[in-house]
Simulated assay, not measured.
Amino acid sequence: MATDFPAEISALRSTFEQIEAVTDPDTLRSQLSELEDQAGSPDLWDDQDHAQAVTQKLSNTKAELDRLGSFRQRIDDLEVLVEMAVEGNDAETLAEADAELTKLRADLSAMEVRTLMTGEWDERNAVVTIRSGAGGDDATDFAEMLLRMYLRWAERHGYATKVLDTSYAEGAGIKSATFEIQAPYAFGIMSVEAGTHRLARISPFGSADKRQTSFAAVEVIPLIEGTDHIEVPETDIKVDVFRSSGPGGQSVNTTDSAVRITHLPTGLVVSMQDEKSQIQNRAAAMRVLQSRLLLLKKEQEAAQKKELAGDIKASWGDQMRSYFLYGQQLVKDLRTGHEVGNPQAVFDGDLDGFIDAGIRWRRQQVSDS
C-alpha cells in the first residue's frame, strides 16, 4: 500500500508542535541569551567549576534549539520532496521520501521521550557504577561486557564519557567500574538502566558445556553541581591512598595516587584512580560521594513520605533485564516487555529501544501511582 504522505506529514507536524509546546523555545532562547551574557563575562573563569557549568549549559541549550529548528526544517523539506516526486511521477524520489519519513518518525519518538523526563535531576550528567555479582568469572566478564555496551552507546550518540575508576578481577573482566556520561539529560536517560542485569549463556570459562547464570548490578546517580551544597565533615570520612592497578591486579602507577574515601556514617565507599594526582583523585571521589549522599537523602525523604502514605511498593530495579546468549538468543526487559533477538547488537550499544521503553514505562508508573 502506498504511503499517505499528506496524512503522515500532518501527523508529524501535530506531534512536533506538542513537543515544541512542552519544550518552550521562547524560554530556551531567553535562557540562551542569559547564558551568553554570563559566558562573555571577563571574570567567568575565576571560578572554574562555575565556568564549566555555564559553558556546558550554554552548549546544551544551543543544541536543544538547533534540534527543534532542524526538525521543523526536515518536515518542510520532506513535504517539498514529496511534491516534486508526485509532480514528476518519480518512484525513486518517492522511495527516498519514504526512507526520510521513517527516520523522522524515529527521531520524533526520541524527542517525545525527552519531554517525559521531568525529574528533579534528569537534566544532569550521570555517574554510572557497574558491579559484578554472583557467577564467578562469568559475572566479572559480564560486568565488563556491560561497561563496553554503555560506552559504545554513548559513543554512538556523541556523548562524552570518562572512566573514573576500574577494579579489575584476578581472572576475567572487572569487579566494578565507575564512569561519567556528560550529556543533556544523561541522568534522566540512564536512570532507567539501574538495577540487576542477568546473563545466561554457555560459560566460556568452565570445562563442561553447562549453562551459567551470572549477575551484575548497575547504579546510576546524578552528578552534583556546586549549588547543591552537600556538606561532608572531615570527621565523617576516612581517606586511604594506594597505587592504581590494571588488569590482573598489576600496578600501573609507581606512586600512591589512587584514593578511596569511606563515609563513616553510611558506609558508602568511593574509589578513584583515573586522574594522575592524588589531589585530583580525591576531588573526583568527593564529587561522586556527595552525589550519592544527595541521592540517598532524597530517597530517604521519599521513603518516609511513602511510609506515611501507606505505599509499600517494592523497587522496580531488581532483575530488570535478562540477556540470553544460548538457544533463543534474546535480550528482554522484564519491566517493559521490550525484547530484541540480536544480543550482539545490544552489547554493541544498540540500547535506544530499551531506554525509550523504560522511560515511557517509568512515566506510566508515576501516572498510575
Rank of each mutant, 00 (worst) to 15 (best):
L289P: 00
I221D: 11
D228F: 14
Y323L: 03
E301Q: 05
P233I: 00
E339F: 15
K305N: 08
R335T: 07
D236F: 01
V331T: 07
K313A: 13
R287W: 03
T255H: 11
A284N: 05
L289T: 03
L330E: 10
V218F: 08
I230P: 05
G327R: 07
L330K: 15
T266K: 12
G267S: 09
E234Y: 08
V239S: 11
T336C: 05
L289H: 00
A283F: 02
K306N: 09
D228Q: 14
Q273R: 12
H338I: 10
K298G: 04
H229M: 11
Q278V: 02
S315I: 05
D236G: 02
L325M: 15
R260H: 03
A302N: 06
T254C: 10
E299Y: 10
V239H: 10
Q280T: 00
K305G: 08
T336Q: 04
P233M: 02
I221N: 07
P222R: 03
M286C: 03
E231A: 14
L268K: 12
E275T: 10
K305T: 13
L289D: 00
D256V: 03
T227N: 14
Q328M: 12
K332F: 09
V288A: 09
N253Y: 02
D236Y: 00
Q304C: 03
Q329W: 09
A283G: 07
V252F: 01
R335F: 01
S257A: 13
A314H: 09
H338R: 06
G317V: 02
A309P: 01
R292I: 08
A303M: 02
I312D: 15
A285N: 01
Y323Q: 07
Q250S: 13
L330Q: 15
Q278I: 10
W316Y: 01
K306E: 14
T336H: 01
L268E: 14
E219S: 05
D311C: 06
I221T: 15
K276H: 13
K305F: 01
R243H: 12
E231P: 08
